[in-house]
Computed example of a mutant assay.
Amino acid sequence: MGEFTKITEQTSLYDHLENMTTDEILSNMNKEDQKVALAVQEVIPAVSRLVDELAVRFVDGGRLFYIGAGTSGRLGILDASEIPPTFGLPHERVIGLIAGGDTAIRKAVEFAEDDTQQAWVDLKEHDINKNDVVVGIAASGTTPYVTGGVKDARKHGILTACITNNPGSPLAGSVDIPIAVNVGPEFVTGSTRMKSGTSQKLVLNMISTALMIKIGRVEGNKMVNMQLNNNKLVDRGARFITEVLNVDMDKALALLKKHGSVKAAIDANK
């Protein structure tokens, strides 16, 4: 692959940040953040293709793997961890892997991202197969752990995609479905935890939420399969039932307790 412009490393549009007032710092950051959603809008066709491919595989028991390093890896783990409580799927259906292992979620592991073979080792521990999908996340589009992982997965006939902030990067060229969000230079030069990370979070929300809707984990606009593991969620679930079945809150809570989930309570009493 030829040379590409690493947008994430380009010099900030702002300088002498240390001389700015607090309001100026925050206003300029906000000005940059407003560009993110518009940049994400540009990649919706690619995200849509990925979601449709995922939905077909999920119906047959397929899984979604996110692989990343640093901030990107943490964002993948965050998205994966929210699937069971929000949509009631087992935790092994969407899995986030980070270079350096679970230790790296809280503390950077030196040089872990530089190993081109470790991601495939990590994926094989989960018995990855052709029914699964691997999404590599790397703002730079050059992280060896991620590029190596998607290349190995693709070699084994597994569908691959990526979320990157550098169009034309090695990562984007190594996957079946590249999602390259061009958010421009960061406010602090090279600090991809900022706009790049925000764009990754938005795309991850889109992928997993759209997928869960497509495979029937949402009804109407309600999280009918959410886990009821705290009082707030029990209350929310009961309110969903009151709206759908037109019963009072006490009756809704009783139905929820009896059936164990919003979906089961609604299905049994329609």
Rank of each mutant, 00 (worst) to 15 (best):
Ala264Lys: 15
Ser12Thr: 00
Val203Arg: 06
Ala55Ile: 01
Ala119Val: 08
Gly190Met: 07
Ser208Trp: 03
Gly136Val: 01
Pro185Asp: 01
Val43His: 04
Ala99Ser: 05
Gly149Phe: 04
His91Ala: 12
Thr22Ala: 14
Gly148Tyr: 10
Val234Ile: 15
Val109Thr: 13
Leu78Val: 09
Lys35Glu: 05
Lys195Leu: 03
Lys201Ile: 01
Ala99Lys: 05
Met20Lys: 15
Met1Phe: 04
Lys270Cys: 00
Ala139Phe: 10
Glu92Pro: 04
Ala104Thr: 01
Gly70Cys: 01
Gly260Gln: 11
Lys251Gly: 00
Asn165Thr: 03
Gln200Phe: 08
Asp250Gln: 13
Glu3Phe: 04
Ala161Cys: 13
Leu54Arg: 07
Glu42Gly: 00
Ala104Gly: 04
Gln41Tyr: 02
Phe65Ser: 03
Glu125Pro: 03
Met223Ser: 09
Leu26Arg: 11
Met20His: 14
Met212Ser: 02
Glu3Trp: 06
Met194Val: 08
Met226Asn: 10
Ala265Met: 10
Thr71Arg: 10
Leu202Cys: 10
Ala80Arg: 02
Ala238Ile: 07
Lys258Pro: 02
Ile163Lys: 04
Asp15Ala: 13
Val234Cys: 04
Ser140His: 11
Arg74Gln: 03
Leu64Ser: 02
Lys31Glu: 12
Lys257Trp: 00
Lys201Ser: 04
Arg74Ala: 00
Ile207Leu: 12
Val234Thr: 13
Phe111Tyr: 14
Ala39Tyr: 01
Met212Trp: 11
His126Tyr: 15
Lys124Gln: 15
Leu38Cys: 00
Thr11His: 08
Leu50His: 05
Met223Glu: 11
Ile67Lys: 09
Val135Ile: 12
Ala210Thr: 07
Val175Cys: 10
Gly73Phe: 00
Asp15Gln: 15
Val244Ala: 05
Ile177Trp: 09
Met20Gly: 02
Val134Gly: 03
Met194Gln: 12
Thr147Asn: 06
Gly173Ala: 15
Leu204Ser: 14
Leu97Gly: 05
Val203Asn: 03
Leu75Lys: 09
Thr21Gln: 13
Thr198Lys: 07
Lys232Trp: 06
Phe4Arg: 07
Thr147Trp: 02
Lys6His: 07
Lys107Val: 05
Leu13His: 15
Tyr14Ile: 10
Gly237Arg: 04
Ile158Gly: 09
Asp15Asn: 14
Ile7Tyr: 08
Lys130Pro: 11
Ala161His: 14
Val121Thr: 14
Pro90Ser: 08
Arg57Ala: 00
Lys107Asp: 05
Leu159Thr: 14
Lys258Asp: 14
His16Phe: 02
Leu50Asn: 04
Tyr14Trp: 15
Pro84Leu: 01
Val181Cys: 05
Asn230Asp: 15
Gly260Lys: 12
Met1Leu: 12
Ala112Lys: 12
His156Tyr: 09
Asp79Val: 01
Lys31Arg: 12
Ala153Ser: 14
Gly184Lys: 13
Gly190Glu: 08
Met226Arg: 13
Lys232Tyr: 06
Ala153His: 11
Thr189His: 13
Thr103Arg: 14
Gly141Ile: 01
Leu228Ser: 07
Asn225Gln: 09
Asp248Pro: 04
Arg217Asn: 04
Asn28Lys: 15
Val47His: 06
Ala180Thr: 13
Met194Ala: 09
Pro85Arg: 07
Val146Lys: 13
Val47Pro: 05
